[in-house]
Write a protein that binds this DNA or RNA. Structure first.
Lengths: 223, 223
DNA sequence: GGATATATTTTGACAAATCAAAATCAACGC
DNA sequence: GCGTTGATTTTGATTTGTCAAAATATATCC
């Protein structure tokens, strides 16, 4: 069985590879994501390469192998199902659950995972709208517009909030910006770096372009 | 925060101390419980003593300090509440849940623990009848008769099954010997080391004295 | 195309937890 | 009281994952 450290390296490699067109993850990005110094990442990646979980391209970065990706998807599935459980069943604050899931993802067995999945009704996304890898190992990687890039003055539905920091999530929650919520962009002031939003029957409020870029939206459907 | 190893040493020290009149735990017993060689236990116990979690009495054994006992009770509470969750909510087999809880006990936070406790309705015992330490740190250490020592030919209620091995628990389950079940001792043959039991409307069946000693019972109340 | 900046790798060290095997201590029997 | 037995401790080594800092390779910029 993979150690906790190995699981974390693979999980972060997967998340970074998903955001990279060619699947190559630079060492520095991996080190930053894992909060280790670059030399540590190099050492570990070489060990992972020896185990056949990644391919190390010296001075360029790393790529997950099929075996590594399988492990990473399993960990990510645990992480996101645990988050869903903590919010939906234990009624915990969505701003806290990421930190909890970081621990639990390494402690729950596949047997518990399956039961949890059934209890939750096989959800497709976690409370942040992040897609939950299927048990077969597929990951929905659909890309949406964000509040920084979408059309203005039209009704939108929040589909995903791609920031795990408790502060940001608490802010988003306070303004009703969680998956499923309806919102529209009232104004976008690029020089000022500001986006102004309004929720139905709510007051307009502003947030930075950077923050708006972390909130993914789709056209609001009727109903 | 205590490491997983530290939590395990303290938890097993607590379990062994509970079964010892003076609270002194011999090194060898601790090493056996933790499945490490004796030298490892010595090294670790000295480190725990330096942290003020245990008192090491050289060549005699160790004793938990108040601080160590507090940590141990918290871990044990997590273990037993997780077991209860896995059986009561996720409907897992009671023979499997001990192994699962061994991992999860080190991964769940106190915040999750509290939510779980509330979800389960603040249970006093886990699915094996083992008492769950209270949040204040008290542990019900009531001692009962066992099927090896109790009166014969009277109705009894199973209150606790003190064996974590999956094989034994599967056997017990198959014969309906779980906490709450009613049973009586038909015969006890000491030379043969055999106890014969019968459940209401069931066929008599036998088990060894050693096995019978792991099933704790109380007089069955009316109703 | 050579100097400079940046990313990556190497090297040497360290902490935590473990084992194997030798050394030591305590107790017990006679 | 002295040797033997069994439990415990000591010693030296190993594995995993990490850091600090030096060395090296790559990219970029006039």
């Amino acid at each position: 069985m993979a150690t906790i450290a190995v699981e974390n390296y693979l999980k972060h490699a997967l998340l970074l590879a998903e955001r990279s067109p060619d699947g190559l993850v630079p060492m520095g990005e991996l080190a930053t994501a894992l909060e280790v110094v670059p030399g540590t990442a190099t050492t570990m990646v070489k060990a992972l390469a020896d185990s056949g979980l990644v391919v190390h391209e010296p001075r360029r970065g790393l790529r997950l192998t099929a075996a590594g990706r399988r492990v990473a998807l399993n960990v990510l599935r645990k992480h996101r199902l645990v988050e869903t459980f903590l919010v939906n069943v234990l009624k915990m604050d969505w701003a806290q659950v990421h930190a909890e899931a970081e621990q639990l993802e390494h402690a729950i067995s596949d047997a518990v995972l399956d039961r949890l999945d059934a209890l939750l009704g096989h959800p497709a996304t976690d409370p942040h709208g992040d897609p939950i890898p299927s048990v077969e190992g597929t990951l929905n990687s659909a890309v949406y517009a964000t509040l920084a890039t979408c059309a203005t003055e039209v009704a939108l539905r929040v589909v995903r909030v791609t920031d795990q920091s408790a502060d940001f999530l608490t802010f988003a929650e306070a303004h009703g910006l969680r998956p499923g919520a309806v919102v529209q962009v009232v104004d976008r002031n690029l020089p000022a770096g500001l986006v102004t939003l309004r929720r139905p029957r709510g007051k307009p409020f502003a947030l930075s372009l950077a923050a708006a870029g972390r909130i993914w939206v789709a056209p609001a459907e009727a109903g």
